[in-house]
């Protein structure tokens, strides 16, 4: 088991390094850079000579390789650098922005799981076959709804029209309630689809018939037997949809005017604020890797058959 965790940790570091490098290359091949964007403004009245001096002071005129070595060395030393746009240390910007995004992720992920559970139960246990078939189509449709449209509609109806949840002048958990639940809808769709497909295969197995023949109720069979058997693929997907939450955070925070990592990322892209952007990419990738590692580690707890092979493999 220790060997397994060690090899997974090495893999995680490789993924982080790869993401860091790829993002650096992509930002390099984009025309221009942050210094040009900020100081080329004609209103500032800087001469080309002055601009190139400023560029030299930021190290922006160095070769790509030298810049890469410099940035990588700095990051490995734990220094995230300074925002070119504002001059504020990147670490301070992240510190201010992450709580909002974390709350948004928790609400949307938790909401997605509850939504998926409720919906899957209905789709599996609804009384009539045509009704079950119809319910089964809904997740596919839900995953096709654009997030931004859904959120604008949510603001209009839930907040402005019905006055249920305020979205202006709120902070903390209250601020992420509506955006989190709106984001939960498209996130829950793939979870529901995968769970329903697996649950259908599990339900076709003979042991389900045996349980029915013992007098177990459909609800009991679903929660005590179908659920644990159908969970592993859903768990894997739930690790992957975490990426969608991060992507969704960019749109959601912009629509709702939340100052989280998503909005920070959006501004950093607009300004080509390389240091900020790379820090956000690193944090997102690290979160993604940790979540998926946790998901993999949970599998043997659910399925005893995997437990045995892994114990054998580590011996």
């Amino acid at each position: 088991m220790t060997r397994y965790i060690f090899s997974r940790a090495v893999q995680a570091l490789l993924v982080l390094w790869g993401a860091f490098t790829l993002s650096f290359v992509l930002l390099q091949v984009m025309p221009g850079d942050a210094v040009l964007i900020k100081f080329q403004d004609p209103e500032l009245g800087l001469s080309p000579q002055q601009i190139s001096d400023i560029r030299a002071s930021y190290g922006a005129d160095e070769s790509a390789f030298v810049q890469y070595a410099h940035v990588l060395g700095r990051t490995l030393a734990g220094q995230l650098g300074y925002s070119i746009e504002t001059g504020v240390p990147v670490s301070r910007m992240l510190h201010a922005a992450y709580p909002t995004t974390l709350r948004l992720a928790v609400v949307s992920f938790g909401g997605a799981i509850m939504l998926a559970a409720a919906f899957a139960t209905a789709a599996l246990l609804a009384p009539l076959r045509p009704l079950r078939a119809a319910l089964r189509l809904v997740p596919g449709l839900a995953s096709g709804i654009p997030v931004f449209w859904l959120e604008i509609v949510a603001i209009q109806l839930v907040s402005f029209h019905w006055n249920l949840v305020p979205v202006v002048g709120v902070s903390g958990w209250a601020a992420v309630l509506l955006p989190g639940l709106a984001l939960a809808i498209p996130i829950s769709a793939p979870l529901t689809q995968v769970f329903l497909a697996t649950a259908e295969r599990v339900t076709a197995q003979p042991f389900i018939d045996v349980l029915r023949a013992r007098g177990a109720s459909p609800l009991r069979i679903l929660y005590a037997h179908v659920l644990p058997n159908a969970l592993p693929p859903t768990l894997t997907i739930s690790g992957l949809v975490f990426g969608e939450i991060l992507a969704g955070a960019v749109v959601t925070e912009t629509v709702f005017g939340l100052d989280g990592l998503g909005q920070l990322a959006q501004q950093a892209v607009a300004n080509q604020d390389v240091a900020v952007l790379q820090a956000i990419i690193l944090i997102s990738v690290a979160g993604f890797v940790v979540i998926n590692f946790t998901v993999d580690a949970l599998h043997p707890l659910i399925d005893p058959r995997i437990r045995r092979t892994q114990a054998g493999g580590a011996a």
Partner: peptide, 8 residues
């Protein structure tokens, strides 16, 4: 072989 719940 398939008449007992494999995970319990």
């Amino acid at each position: 072989a398939h008449s007992l719940d494999p995970v319990r």
